[in-house]
Design a protein around this nucleic acid. Structure first.
Lengths: 114, 114
DNA sequence: TGGCTATTTGGCTATATTACCAAATATTCA
DNA sequence: TGAATATTTGGTAATATAGCCAAATAGCCA
C-alpha cells in the first residue's frame, strides 16, 4: 500500500472498527437519545459491567464519546452525532442484500411464504 | 440486550466491521473512482493476491461490492456509494481528536513546533 | 490438449477481540 | 473512618481476524 496514505486509512478504519460491534452500536444509538451512565447502559444491555465499561472505553479511544464524572457516576455522551447518519446508508445496504437473496430464491423456484 | 433488537444491530455491525480495515477502506475508495479487477487492486495494495481476494470477499459478503467476471478477470465495483459519505464525518471525528490532544499538550506546557 | 494468467480456497500461525470474574479505585454518606 | 455504590483494570479462555504460502479452479489461446 502506498506508504504515505496508509496512516490515514488506519485512523479511519479504527473509528469504523469501534462502531463495528452490536453492543457498541446500541450504545451509540442510546447516547444519541440522551447521555447515560455506565450503570444505566449495563442494565439495558444485560452484560457484565466490566464488559460494558470496556466497550465504552473503545468508543472513547476512538473519540466517539465523551465522559463526564458527576457524583459517583460517569456519564457518557456522543460527541459526533453525525455517525448516526451512517445508519440510513447501512440500512440501504441491508435492504439491497435481502432483495438480492429473494431474487436468488425466486430464480431457484423457492416459494417464499409471506 | 433486548432480544428483539439484537439481530438488527448485529447486521449493521457486520457492515461497519467490513469497512473497519485500512486495506478494505482503500479498496472501497478505489472502487468508488472506478471498477477494478483483483489484479489491479493487488498491485496498488502490495500484499499477496490471496490476501486481497479475501478482503474482497469480506466486502462482498457484507453486500458492499459486486463482482462481475469478464474474460479471465473479475471486476469489482462499489454497490452503495453512499458509504463514501461516512468519510466526511469520520474526518471530523479525527480532527476533533487531534484538537483535543493539542489542547492537552498546551495545558501541560508542551511546545508544539509548527 | 497444454500452458498461461487470474482468482479463490485451504492450511497454518500470529495477533486481536470479546466476555467473564475478581480485584482495585474512587466517591458519597452515615 | 467504614460501608455502600459506581466504575475501571488485570487476568484468562474462547473465538475471530489477518497474513502468507501452496494448491485448486476457471477461462483463454496457441
Amino acid at each position: 500500500m502506498e506508504q504515505k496514505l496508509h496512516p490515514q486509512f488506519e485512523a479511519r478504519a479504527n473509528i469504523l472498527k469501534a462502531m463495528g460491534h452490536p453492543t457498541r452500536l446500541f450504545i451509540i444509538e442510546e447516547l444519541h437519545k440522551k447521555e447515560r451512565c455506565v450503570n444505566e447502559l449495563t442494565e439495558m444491555i444485560g452484560a457484565d459491567v466490566s464488559t460494558v465499561s470496556k466497550h465504552l472505553s473503545v468508543l472513547k479511544n476512538a473519540g466517539l464519546v465523551l465522559d463526564e464524572k458527576r457524583g459517583t457516576s460517569i456519564y457518557y455522551r456522543l460527541c459526533c452525532p453525525c455517525v448516526l447518519d451512517f445508519i440510513g446508508c447501512i440500512e440501504t445496504v441491508l435492504k439491497t442484500n435481502v432483495e438480492k437473496q429473494m431474487n436468488i430464491a425466486q430464480c431457484c423456484g423457492i416459494n417464499l411464504k409471506k
